[in-house]
């Protein structure tokens, strides 16, 4: 299974790199879709059907909206010149990346290997959730009962995003 996930991740990286360098924005959007749909297969292989359903539906709707937006605007990408300032920016990015990797390595060195020793909280969730929440689907039990604040925050973020879209995409005020 790790081999399959590795192959899919390499595929996703190739799609993302193509999406950056494509000269036509429509093909860049579709190459971005490769990343989303490969993520669906990854979720299914990792036995997370809840996430897979959400990901595949949201990816489809987003792709439709993005294609509609691209078809109505310019399909040519505006390339800038690669001058001195761009070199400085790239060098800064590489330095910051190296520093962040070093800190990540230092911070994760004393931790236990992945998946071990961290099951103390998960045991309570996995064994007691059906009795405490009455929900057979454990994911819903965690999302809406143990982690209710998170769900409230997500829903509020969505409302705020819609408010932002309605505020920006308006030429005349409503009478």
């Amino acid at each position: 299974m790790e081999l399959a996930i590795s192959v899919i991740v390499i595929f996703m990286i190739l799609g993302a790199i193509y999406a950056i360098h494509a000269s036509d924005i429509l093909s860049a959007v579709i190459a971005g879709g490769i990343v989303g749909y490969s993520l669906v297969i990854c979720f299914l292989l990792l036995k997370a059907p809840d996430l897979a359903i959400v990901q595949i539906v949201v990816e489809t709707i987003t792709l439709i909206i993005m294609v509609a937006v691209v078809l109505d605007s310019s399909r040519k990408e505006a390339y800038g010149k690669f001058d001195t300032q761009a070199w400085v920016t790239a060098a800064t990015a590489v330095v910051i990346l190296a520093i962040l990797f070093w800190f990540l390595k230092e911070a994760s060195a004393p931790l236990a290997p992945f998946g071990e020793n961290t099951m103390r909280m998960a045991d309570a969730y996995v064994n007691g959730a059906v009795d405490k929440t009455g929900s057979v689907n454990l994911v819903t039990g965690v999302l809406f009962d143990f982690r209710g604040y998170d769900t409230l925050g997500e829903a509020t973020v969505l409302v705020t995003a819609v408010l932002g879209v309605l505020t920006i995409l308006r030429i005349r005020g409503r009478k």
């Binding site: 359903i53 539906v57 489809t60 709707i61 439709i64 689907n137 997500e154």
Partner: peptide
């Protein structure tokens, strides 16, 4: 949503998809 995979988020997007 509390019995099978899915729930409010996934189902809501599917309903919006039918209108779209």
């Amino acid at each position: 949503g509390h019995l099978t995979p899915g729930g409010g988020f996934a189902g809501g997007v599917i309903v919006a998809g039918s209108f779209i």
